[in-house]
Every structure is written in C-alpha cells, then in structure tokens.
Simulated assay, not measured.
Amino acid sequence: MHSRLAKFAIGQVVRHRIYPFRGVIFDVDPQFSNTDDYWFSIPEHIRPSKDQPFYHLLAENDESSYVAYVSEQNLVEDETGEPVTHPQAQLIFESFGSGQYKLRPRISH
C-alpha cells in the first residue's frame, strides 16, 4: 500500500463528514492500522479505502464522549473555533487557542 501525507494535524478539531460528531486529533496512522473485525464492522456502502491516513480522535456528540478511529475522507475541518469538551483532552493537551490544541510536552514525539 502507498500512504500519503496527512491532511489534518494532531491537535486540530475536526468533524465527521456523515455522522454528527466532532473531535480533536491525538494520533495519526499513515494508513488503516486497526483490526479486520473493526474494518468489517464499517457498513460496506461507506467503508473507506485503507490506503489513506486514519485519525484517532477524542470525539463527542450531543450524548457522549468516546475515542473514534476515522478515515481522512470522512473528516472535514471544524469551523466553530470551539474546543471539545472530551474529559481526556486536558490529559493530552495543555492548551487551546485559535481552533488548535497544543500537546503537553511530555507526550510529544
């Protein structure tokens, strides 16, 4: 598989193109790197190509907070300028400003 550069960055707030949730990116895989069970759990009619970046998000919707694993093609930039309210965001990121989170120094790699 050929991987390409990620369009979105760690600390960036994004939203899902189809489903009503948004989140902050805390890790990026250059291509799909989850289990086959996870892959086949995605409905076939919306299952994305594995040959693209996949993002780990601290995600939230109107009802809950959770961790999501989303293909690049299914993400768009969140234009609200608002931080996420995910309870784990403060553990990974030290601050939020201008629509972007800044990683805590001890987590940077």
Rank of each mutant, 00 (worst) to 15 (best):
G23D: 02
Q12V: 06
R106D: 09
F8Y: 15
S3N: 10
S49N: 15
E82A: 01
E44W: 11
F96G: 00
P83A: 09
G97T: 07
H86L: 02
D51I: 12
Q90G: 03
S64G: 05
N34C: 11
F93Y: 07
Q90S: 09
F54P: 05
L57D: 03
M1V: 15
Q90F: 08
S95G: 08
P83K: 12
D29L: 11
Q100E: 02
I18P: 04
Q90R: 13
I46D: 03
V14N: 03
S65H: 14
E82I: 04
T85Q: 12
L5I: 15
T80S: 03
Q31R: 15
S33A: 13
L58D: 01
Y38I: 13
K102P: 00
L91F: 12
G11F: 05
H109A: 15
L58R: 04
R17E: 10
D29A: 02
Q100L: 07
F40R: 08
V67W: 10
K102I: 03
S33K: 09
N74G: 02
R22I: 08
S33H: 09
F8L: 13
H86S: 01
K7H: 01
H56V: 09
P53M: 14
H56G: 05
V76Y: 06
R22F: 06
D51Y: 11
R15T: 03
A68S: 10
E77G: 03
G81A: 02
R15E: 04
P83C: 12
S108N: 11
Y19H: 14
I107Q: 00
E82D: 06
F54I: 14
V76I: 15
G23T: 04
T80C: 02
R106K: 14
P53Q: 10
D29T: 01
E79A: 06
A6C: 06
I107L: 10
R4A: 09
Y55T: 01
P105I: 14
P53I: 14
D78E: 04
Q52I: 13
G23Y: 06
S95W: 09
A89Q: 11
D78V: 05
I25W: 00
E79T: 11
V14L: 07
I42G: 01
K50Y: 05
Q52H: 08
V76R: 13
V76W: 09
L103H: 04
H56Q: 05
R15Q: 07
R4M: 15
V13F: 07
F21T: 03
R22H: 06
T35K: 12
Y69V: 08
P43F: 12
H109N: 15
L58Q: 02
D27R: 13
